[in-house]
């Protein structure tokens, strides 16, 4: 479904060139749930934006559904770290925004029904007419989730969507997303820095190392679903994989990554 070959990304920053990503080869199968996990600054969000067509790669090729990515596609949805809702629109009209912007979309009543179904699925029935500021952070992010599902995308790209929420809400939403994923055939690429999220959600976790962002390892997560972090979980498996991811993420970065110039210059 998604194919990255030798992808690299270089930014021209104020302090010269920064290599954000280097030699990324990744193949995500249709219907698969892949998480990109790494420390902040490892280029995982950049990688997601390359797949979304929000950013052209400096080198290499990005393909979605067998076609090279040249810009945002209608069958790929993007979910942000913050809810990114338009504050003057009701919950329902925020969910319907992608349909409204698509000049080719027809059957608007069908989409309206779908929006109601989606909102019900995430427990927001009765909130259709509310404005975003009347909702809690978790509810807002649920609205955002519905918005990214409204056009029944083939691919969902999620950029740390739950990281701004409190721990309990985060776990709740992870389990909800897992449930939704089990019903849909959508391919999901999910960026996170939380080992917990990766273990609950992913079929495979791609571990990235920072500066420049490189693929360190791909960890298969074969714990049976539905997974939970509560009792009756496959605790041994969870512990084994969490430990492994932790080990990979905690590795010391190579000395050449340290940039002494920063400190000298700031004096």
């Amino acid at each position: 479904m998604i194919r990255l070959d030798g992808v690299g990304q270089v930014f021209d920053g104020r302090e010269g060139r920064i290599t954000a990503l280097e030699k990324i080869d990744l193949h995500v199968h249709a219907g698969e749930f892949v998480t990109l996990i790494g420390r902040s600054g490892c280029g995982k969000s950049t990688l997601l934006r390359l797949i979304a067509g929000l950013l052209p790669p400096t080198s290499g090729t990005v393909e979605v559904a067998g076609e090279p990515v040249t810009g945002p596609r209608a069958d790929v949805s993007f979910m942000f770290q913050r809810p990114a809702l338009l504050p003057w629109r009701s919950v329902l009209s925020n969910v319907l925004l992608p349909v409204e912007l698509d000049r080719q979309a027809r059957d608007r009543t069908t989409y309206r029904d779908l929006a109601h179904t989606l909102l019900e699925m995430v427990g927001l029935q009765g909130f259709e007419r509310r404005l975003p500021h009347e909702l809690s952070g978790g509810m807002q992010q649920r609205v955002s989730l519905c918005r990214s599902l409204i056009r029944s995308p083939q691919v969902m790209l999620m950029d740390e969507p739950f990281s701004a929420l409190d721990a309990l809400t985060r776990t709740e939403l992870s389990e909800e997303l897992q449930r939704i994923k089990m019903e849909l055939s959508t391919t999901i690429v999910f960026v996170t820095h939380s080992i917990e999220e990766a273990v609950v959600l992913a079929d495979r976790a791609v571990v990235l190392t920072p500066r420049p962002g490189r693929m360190r390892e791909i960890v298969e997560i074969d714990i049976p679903r539905p997974r939970t972090l509560g009792p009756n979980a496959h605790l041994e498996d969870v512990a084994r994989i969490s430990g492994r991811l932790h080990g990979l993420l905690a590795e010391k970065t190579a000395p050449d990554d340290v940039r002494p110039t920063d400190k000298v210059r700031s004096r």
């Binding site: 810009g71 945002p72 596609r73 209608a74 949805s77 770290q81 990114a84 338009l86 912007l101 698509d102």
Partner: peptide, 14 residues
């Protein structure tokens, strides 16, 4: 305009 909302509109091909 918040950058994230601009990016949202771009991701929706507005």
């Amino acid at each position: 305009t918040p950058a994230e909302l601009v990016e949202l509109m771009r991701s929706l091909n507005a």
